[in-house]
Measured scan of single mutants.
Amino acid sequence: MTFKLIINGKTLKGETTTEAVDAATAEKVFKQYFNDNGIDGEWTYDDATKTFTITE
């Protein structure tokens, strides 16, 4: 399955996707992406659209 990440950061904005077997696996991938890029904020997940959103 394809999961999308929408980034609404102070310095970084955009979208990316990842292929994962489930939302929990995608969450781990995206959290690592947050850490690697110094993004910290509030994030949500919409199961209907398989979209994670992080807002700094």
Score class of each variant (00 low, 15 high):
23 A>Y: 14
32 Q>N: 10
11 T>W: 14
29 V>C: 06
37 N>T: 14
52 F>L: 01
15 E>Q: 07
21 V>T: 10
37 N>E: 14
41 G>W: 15
19 E>N: 14
26 A>C: 02
14 G>D: 10
39 I>W: 12
8 N>D: 11
34 F>K: 11
50 K>C: 05
40 D>L: 13
14 G>S: 09
13 K>H: 12
1 M>G: 10
42 E>P: 06
9 G>P: 02
15 E>D: 05
4 K>L: 09
30 F>Q: 00
14 G>T: 14
44 T>D: 07
50 K>F: 10
44 T>R: 07
20 A>P: 01
18 T>S: 04
38 G>T: 10
11 T>K: 08
4 K>V: 11
39 I>R: 04
51 T>I: 04
1 M>F: 14
41 G>D: 03
7 I>Q: 02
9 G>D: 03
28 K>Y: 08
35 N>E: 15
45 Y>P: 00
35 N>Q: 13
53 T>H: 05
39 I>V: 08
51 T>S: 04
14 G>Y: 15
52 F>R: 00
6 I>M: 04
23 A>G: 03
11 T>L: 12
28 K>H: 09
38 G>V: 14
30 F>N: 00
32 Q>L: 12
5 L>K: 01
13 K>E: 06
17 T>G: 03
8 N>V: 12
47 D>F: 07
17 T>C: 11
33 Y>V: 04
2 T>W: 09
13 K>N: 12
1 M>H: 14
21 V>E: 10
33 Y>L: 12
44 T>A: 13
27 E>R: 05
13 K>M: 10
43 W>Q: 01
20 A>C: 06
41 G>M: 10
56 E>C: 11
29 V>A: 08
39 I>F: 14
15 E>F: 08
52 F>W: 06
24 A>S: 09
3 F>V: 02
41 G>E: 03
46 D>E: 05
37 N>Q: 13
26 A>D: 00
22 D>L: 02
32 Q>K: 13
34 F>G: 15
54 I>R: 02
18 T>P: 01
6 I>K: 05
7 I>S: 03
13 K>I: 11
2 T>F: 07
37 N>G: 08
51 T>C: 03
38 G>P: 13
53 T>Y: 08
3 F>G: 01
24 A>I: 09
5 L>Y: 02
41 G>Y: 14
33 Y>G: 03
24 A>E: 11
53 T>G: 02
55 T>G: 05
17 T>I: 07
15 E>W: 10
23 A>V: 10
41 G>Q: 05
38 G>E: 08
11 T>Q: 09
49 T>P: 00
50 K>N: 07
35 N>G: 11
15 E>N: 04
22 D>R: 01
43 W>M: 13
10 K>L: 15
24 A>T: 08
51 T>A: 02
54 I>E: 00
44 T>Y: 08
44 T>C: 08
54 I>A: 06
8 N>W: 09
22 D>S: 04
42 E>Y: 12
42 E>R: 08
12 L>H: 13
29 V>L: 10
10 K>F: 14
35 N>A: 15
22 D>W: 02
22 D>Y: 02
22 D>F: 02
33 Y>E: 05
23 A>H: 07
34 F>S: 15
52 F>K: 00
6 I>Y: 04
20 A>K: 02
9 G>S: 12
38 G>H: 14
32 Q>F: 06
27 E>L: 15
52 F>T: 00
54 I>H: 06
11 T>C: 15
27 E>A: 09
47 D>Q: 07
